[in-house]
Design a protein around this nucleic acid. Structure first.
Length: 424
DNA sequence: TCTGGGGTCCTAGGACCC
DNA sequence: TCTGGGGTCCTAGGACCC
């Protein structure tokens, strides 16, 4: 049986998620302008802005100094990543009561597939199948509000991009369905930037062509070399599957395919220094801490990396990466040896760095036999892992040895984000 | 204004192999 | 001696998302 090309894909987005959670934990923040982000005066950015400060032009990703300038009277709350995941999990649990197919897109965003749910949920009050789904989604949104006490907005459409754009239009705390056949009328007046995948660079390029809205973009021939594949991509995103293309069963559509959590993806940890670093030994200390953390995450998740990549950001914000393929490993010593080698090769005496990062990619599944001959960690390392698995990464901390500007060790760690939770 | 940290996906050139 | 074309892997960079 083929799915109907009706609006059955939903995008659920939690409204100003970090701000909402902080207000839940501290009711004095309710009704006042709130900025969640890096500490004032640090080299941080805004991670979540309440609607009050958005009205003043504060946006997530904005440097904290700029946010302070625009909203000096706001409450500034440090980001607590260790807190938010639990609330996202509560929301997901509610969502799963209503929808059989749920995919987590990010900490505050879920995609839901309601194909085939119409009959299950039908009630006599519903004028048609779309009305049934829209009603169920409203009930789901209200259940999240009542049980988790977090505001969410939901967009419903025939495709993921349409559902996502609809959820943005539904904010705050609303539900918006774009029915089949209404996609173009819905999208045409919107700025091109609203389409998922069109960012600041593409927006700027299109502006140079005099194109501001999705409607104007769709008026360009797909073959126009100035827009590359953009027109075709947007058109496809606004076209229901099954119209003009053979339909796949809902669960086989790429939008909802499960990833193999072990064999794919990448893991990385990076830190911006409090102050730019010009001494290699200081950078090497920081690198050890990063490698320790990222390899621990890899071992915990189960897997080995075939590529180790070092990331350097210089004081002028130019960023380079240097990577190397290695025999699959999750061992701290293996990764550290490569990372140090890459750092020494890339190190420049004349340039100070503001950020250091390590990425493990090309992940493959763990192989039991390898452990027999090459244990992923020596005995003490295994004991440290065990403590961290139970009590969290920061239950054990390694001290840094070198300090920027100091004649000799010891010194305090120079990494920013000290005491922050294990990276996710 | 002075720019976090975690990711995904895409492109492109060169090495290498057949 | 000079010459194919295709495929895969590696590496670097960048756009984009939340």
């Amino acid at each position: 049986m083929s799915p109907s090309p009706a609006a059955r894909i939903a995008c659920l987005d939690l409204d100003t998620f970090f701000v909402s959670v902080e207000r839940l934990l501290d009711p004095s923040l309710v009704g006042v302008p709130v900025v969640v982000g890096g500490r004032k005066g640090s080299r941080g950015v805004v991670t979540s802005a309440s609607y009050e400060v958005r009205a003043l032009g504060v946006r997530s990703g904005m440097p904290m100094a700029e946010a302070v300038r625009r909203a000096p009277d706001a409450a500034f709350v440090p980001t607590r990543h260790d807190v938010y995941g639990g609330y996202a999990a509560q929301v997901k649990a509610v969502v799963e009561r209503f929808c059989p197919v749920v995919r987590t897109a990010s900490i505050d965003e879920f995609f839901l597939d309601f194909h085939g749910c119409e009959r299950l949920y039908h009630r006599p009050v519903d004028t048609d199948a779309d009305a049934t789904i829209a009603r169920v989604v409203r009930e789901m949104r209200e259940a999240i509000q009542a049980e988790v006490r977090l505001p969410a907005s939901v967009g419903i459409g025939t495709t993921r991009p349409v559902a996502k754009m609809a959820s943005a239009r539904a904010k705050p705390a609303g539900v918006l369905m774009v029915r089949r056949g209404e996609e173009l009328a819905f999208a045409a007046p919107l700025p091109v930037r609203r389409f998922p995948g069109i960012g600041p660079v593409a927006e700027e390029r299109l502006a140079g062509l005099g194109i501001a809205t999705l409607g104007a973009l769709l008026a360009i021939p797909e073959s126009d070399p100035r827009v590359g594949a953009l027109v075709a991509t947007v058109r496809a995103g606004l076209t229901p599957p099954g119209l003009g293309a053979p339909a796949l069963p809902a669960r086989d559509r790429p939008a909802f395919q499960e990833h193999d959590a072990v064999a794919e993806g990448s893991l990385s940890n990076e830190r911006t220094f409090f102050a730019d670093v010009g001494e290699r030994l200081v950078a090497e200390d920081a690198l050890r801490a990063l490698v320790e953390r990222v390899t621990w995450r890899l071992r915990r998740r189960g897997g080995r990396a075939r590529t180790v990549t070092l990331k350097l950001r210089y004081a002028d914000f130019t960023t380079i990466t240097r990577g190397r393929s290695v025999p699959p490993t999750a061992a701290e010593a293996d990764v550290l040896a490569v990372a140090l080698d890459l750092l020494r090769a890339a190190w420049s005496r004349s340039l100070r760095i503001r950020l250091l990062g390590v990425q493990l990619s090309n992940l493959v599944a763990p192989e039991a036999q390898v452990a027999l001959f090459a244990p992923p960690r020596p005995r003490m390392g295994a004991a440290i892992d065990a403590v961290r698995d139970r009590f969290g990464y920061d239950a054990i901390r390694m001290g840094a040895v070198h300090k920027e500007g100091a004649r000799k060790p010891p010194g305090r760690p120079v990494l920013a984000g000290k005491g922050s939770p294990p990276g996710r």
